[in-house]
Amino acid sequence: MNIRRYHLMAWLVLLLLACRETPKVAKVAVADTTKTLASMPIEKEELTDSIADDSLNYANYYIVVADTGLSYPKLNLKMKGLAKSLHMQIDMLGRSYNEKENLISLPKNNEDEIYAGEYFPRRIPSESLSLEYLNYYSAEARQKTIALVTGMYAELKQADSALTAVKRINPQAFKFYSKVYIGCMH
C-alpha cells in the first residue's frame, strides 16, 4: 500500500472515530509570529500517547516549521527546494493555492461538499512537507500567516531530529508544541 493511501485511510479512520463537534480556532494577530513561537518553551517530557488527556478530540504534537510568511508562491518555491535537499515528499492533502481568493484550499469540486473550496488543515503526524495556515496550530499566529511545515510529530525526539536536519539548510527553522484538533470537522 503506498504512503498516500495509508495517509488517506488514516484520515478517514480518525474522522469516523472522532466525529463529535466542530473546533473553535482562535485567531489572534501578533507582530512577529516566528519569534514568538520559536521562543516558547517546548515540553521536555516524551509523549507516551499522542492523544491528549483532556479530550479524545485533541492530540498534542510537535510541529517543525522551516519558514513562515504571507507569500504562497515564495514559500511554495522554498518547499520544493527543501523537498529535494532533504529527500522528503510534499503532501498538500489535495489542496492547492487559489490565487484569486488568496487561499490554500481543496478544489471547489471536491467530494467533501463542506470543505470544497476551503482550507482543510493537516491533522495527522507525518514526515512530509506542506504549507499550512499557522493560526490553526497557534493562537499567537497572525491570520493568513503561512507555515512551511516539515513535519508533525507525537514524540519530542523525532521532532528534535527533524529540526536539526532542517536547520542545516534553513537556520531560522523552529519547532513548537501544539494541541491540535483531530475530532470531526463536519
Results as ranks from 00 to 15, higher is better:
residue 123 R to H: 15
residue 94 G to Q: 06
residue 61 Y to N: 12
residue 63 I to P: 02
residue 121 P to V: 05
residue 88 M to Y: 08
residue 92 M to Q: 14
residue 117 G to F: 09
residue 117 G to A: 03
residue 104 I to E: 14
residue 91 D to F: 12
residue 70 L to F: 07
residue 105 S to Q: 11
residue 122 R to W: 06
residue 77 L to Y: 15
residue 98 N to I: 02
residue 60 N to P: 04
residue 87 H to E: 12
residue 97 Y to R: 11
residue 82 L to V: 02
residue 71 S to P: 01
residue 102 N to S: 12
residue 92 M to W: 05
residue 110 N to F: 07
residue 119 Y to R: 01
residue 98 N to T: 04
residue 91 D to L: 12
residue 49 D to V: 14
residue 98 N to H: 10
residue 92 M to R: 08
residue 65 V to S: 03
residue 63 I to T: 11
residue 91 D to C: 08
residue 110 N to M: 01
residue 87 H to V: 05
residue 114 I to K: 10
residue 53 D to V: 10
residue 55 S to Y: 09
residue 99 E to T: 05
residue 122 R to C: 04
residue 79 M to Q: 08
residue 125 P to E: 09
residue 125 P to G: 14
residue 115 Y to K: 07
residue 85 S to K: 11
residue 79 M to N: 02
residue 63 I to R: 10
residue 127 E to P: 04
residue 91 D to E: 11
residue 107 P to K: 12
residue 126 S to D: 15
residue 112 D to C: 06
residue 114 I to T: 08
residue 78 K to V: 00
residue 122 R to Q: 11
residue 92 M to P: 02
residue 115 Y to Q: 02
residue 79 M to W: 04
residue 127 E to T: 11
residue 123 R to I: 14
residue 64 V to R: 05
residue 106 L to T: 04
residue 101 E to V: 01
residue 87 H to D: 12
residue 108 K to M: 04
residue 72 Y to L: 01
residue 84 K to M: 05
residue 85 S to N: 06
residue 70 L to K: 15
residue 106 L to R: 15
residue 109 N to A: 02
residue 58 Y to R: 07
residue 110 N to E: 15
residue 106 L to S: 11
residue 114 I to L: 13
residue 68 T to H: 06
residue 99 E to I: 04
residue 111 E to Y: 13
residue 70 L to A: 08
residue 124 I to R: 15
residue 100 K to C: 02
residue 112 D to N: 14
residue 86 L to P: 00
residue 124 I to V: 15
residue 116 A to M: 05
residue 102 N to M: 07
residue 88 M to D: 09
residue 128 S to R: 10
residue 49 D to P: 04
residue 114 I to H: 06
residue 85 S to E: 09
residue 63 I to N: 10
residue 80 K to N: 12
residue 93 L to R: 05
residue 50 S to A: 12
residue 68 T to W: 03
residue 109 N to R: 03
residue 62 Y to H: 15
